[in-house]
């Protein structure tokens, strides 16, 4: 459904951030993109949604296809119109607007006012807590509510795929699980396709169908989520378990530092 073919991204004409990334996202599946800070995950998402250009970044090589149509070089609001929406890292709700106004703004591409109304009710059915807060200024919502609002707002344009950037950031584990559960529901009920970027690899691999691991602007590993969970390197470096599957102790680390085998 969505495929990145060997893309390179350069910021400010000099800084090479993505060095040939290829990703395929299957329709109706949750695909996750894992990696440490600075690996280029967010840049990848921004390249897809087109907002890269507002940060003086550019896709210099390769191409991005959505439903067989090239979307690299398209303007971000046109990309949103054809059914691809990004949920930004750190929630980024329109702080001075109320919850409901945020949703209305999210449904901007929908032509009919009655469809917007329906969309709002649909979002409330997935996130009942937002309904309680409908007239409250969204800047004063709690972190979890803001994350729900950010996802709900993205759903307003009835996208076929959403790019979720670190929905767990700064949230309590229970809330994170709740939100991930809803994302799974959206996949199952609405046939929504999701590209999920996460640092919390354990959780991401639990909900995802397929996964990629990124490092230094390259994809270093890919496979089914199940397979990745079993991979000993992933276990060691992302899930914090050693070979036997027990929690790692600091003493072992000092003695022996395992080398990543894909480098």
């Amino acid at each position: 459904m969505l495929s990145l073919n060997n893309i390179e991204v350069v910021y400010d004409n000099v800084i090479l951030v993505l060095k040939g990334v290829s990703i395929a996202v299957e329709a109706g599946k949750i695909t996750t993109l894992l990696g440490a800070n600075g690996a280029g995950k967010t840049t990848t998402l921004k390249a897809i949604s087109g907002v890269l250009r507002t940060e003086r970044g550019e896709v210099t090589k390769g191409n991005i296809e959505f439903d067989g149509k090239r979307i690299d070089g398209m303007r971000p609001f046109d990309i949103a119109k054809i059914g691809l929406v990004q949920v930004f890292e750190g929630r980024r709700v329109f702080e001075h607007l109320t919850t409901e106004e945020n949703l209305i703004a999210g449904g901007h591409v929908v032509a009919q006012a009655s469809k917007v109304r329906e969309g709002i009710e649909r979002v409330y059915s997935y996130f009942p807590r937002l309904k309680e807060r409908r007239t409250q200024q969204s800047g004063y919502l709690s972190g979890g509510e803001q994350q729900m609002l950010a996802i709900g707002r993205a759903l307003m344009s009835s996208p076929r795929i959403i790019l979720l950037d670190e929905p767990s950031l700064g949230l309590a584990p229970m809330l994170t699980e709740e939100i991930f559960g809803i994302v799974q529901q959206l996949r199952d009920k609405e046939k929504l396709t999701v590209l999920l970027v996460e640092q919390n690899a354990t959780l991401a691999l639990e909900v995802a169908d397929h996964g990629y691991v990124m490092e230094n602007g390259r994809i270093v590993l890919e496979g089914d989520a199940e397979k990745l969970r079993q991979n000993s390197d992933i276990k060691e470096f992302y899930l914090g378990l050693n070979e036997v599957g027990t929690r790692k102790s600091y003493r072992d680390v000092k003695h022996y530092k395992r080398r990543k085998r894909w480098l």
Binding site: P76, F77, A80, F88, E101, A105, H108
Partner: peptide, 21 residues
């Protein structure tokens, strides 16, 4: 709806863009 969108733009241009505004 246009007015709300306009306020959204004022709040955060980048996000507004990604929402199709």
């Amino acid at each position: 709806r246009m007015g709300v969108a306009m306020r959204a733009v004022a709040d955060n241009q980048q996000v507004a863009m990604a929402m199709g505004i």
